Computed example of a mutant assay.
Amino acid sequence: MKKQTLIYDGSFEGLLTAIFQVYEERLNDVFIVDEVHYEPDFFSEPVTVYTDDGKANRVWDKLKDYKNLSKLIYWSFLSEFDERERYILEALHYVLKTQNENDYGHPAVLMLSQLTKKVGREKHRMEAFVRFKRTREDLYVSIISPDFNVLPLIAKHFKNRYADQQFVIYDTKRGYGLFYNLDSIAFIELDFNSKEDLEKAMHEEETNYNLLWQNYFSSTNIKSRVNMRLHKQHVPKRYWKYLNEKNPL
């Protein structure tokens, strides 16, 4: 019998549904792959997985019994690493068999841990470096393009920090964003040309604020004491576009 390749829709719920199918049908020689990365294989039988929230919830409820493993699986999924599904399935098999979710000597568990650390660093940096622009409708907007899909992980931080203002954090790399309406956060999709459209919608006071901040930063910066190497170490150059002092618009 050919091995099976379970093709899912790329969502976390879709992945959990595929995992449910693996255990329900007791599949051994099996791969799980995002439909975006699927390539036909003569030696493998393709099987389309249809996302089922009920099955996904059952798997996630089971994973909640393994606090560390559930975090490793979710955060690794958000890394968007091409082979994350293989490591997730291998780690899950191992932990359910041994009940040892902290064995980083196992290659799959170690890989998920490494991916989780990378995602965690990006989460921390987004929380530190994201800046908002005020629009004429008093909506605060931030345009980002993080290395990993960290929007679901930073939502709580910004909701707590900016509880008194409506805001949108939009990920142009993945085409979706967060919208906070002073009550709850929702995931949204928008059709706009990022920076150009933001400039048109920006409140007139925002430009003045940017200029003031630029002048303040310049006047307090002592050029003779600048250590650019250390500066780039703490604030990598790819994050400068989010900072007012580096990127006035």
Rank of each mutant, 00 (worst) to 15 (best):
Q4C: 08
Y8P: 05
Y8E: 00
G14M: 01
V22N: 03
E25T: 08
L27A: 01
L27C: 02
D29W: 09
D29G: 05
V30N: 09
E35L: 02
Y38L: 10
S44F: 12
S44V: 05
T48I: 02
G54A: 07
A56P: 01
A56E: 04
K67M: 04
L69G: 03
S70Q: 00
Y74A: 00
W75P: 00
S76Q: 06
F77I: 05
E80G: 01
F81H: 14
E90Y: 00
L92P: 02
L96H: 07
N100S: 10
N100I: 11
N102I: 11
N102L: 13
P107F: 06
V109R: 00
T116S: 13
H124L: 11
R125Q: 13
A128F: 04
A128G: 07
F129Y: 14
F132P: 10
F132H: 03
R136Q: 14
Y140C: 11
V141K: 09
I143N: 05
I143P: 02
P146A: 13
N149S: 15
V150C: 08
P152Q: 08
P152H: 05
A155L: 11
A155R: 14
Y162I: 12
D164C: 04
F167Y: 15
V168Y: 12
Y170C: 03
D171R: 03
R174C: 00
R174I: 07
Y176N: 12
G177T: 13
D183F: 01
I185F: 06
F187G: 03
D191H: 13
N193K: 02
N193V: 07
E196Y: 09
E196L: 04
D197M: 03
L198T: 04
H203W: 04
E205D: 15
L211M: 09
L212N: 08
W213M: 05
Q214Y: 09
N215L: 15
N215S: 12
F217T: 12
I222S: 06
I222Y: 14
K223S: 13
L230T: 13
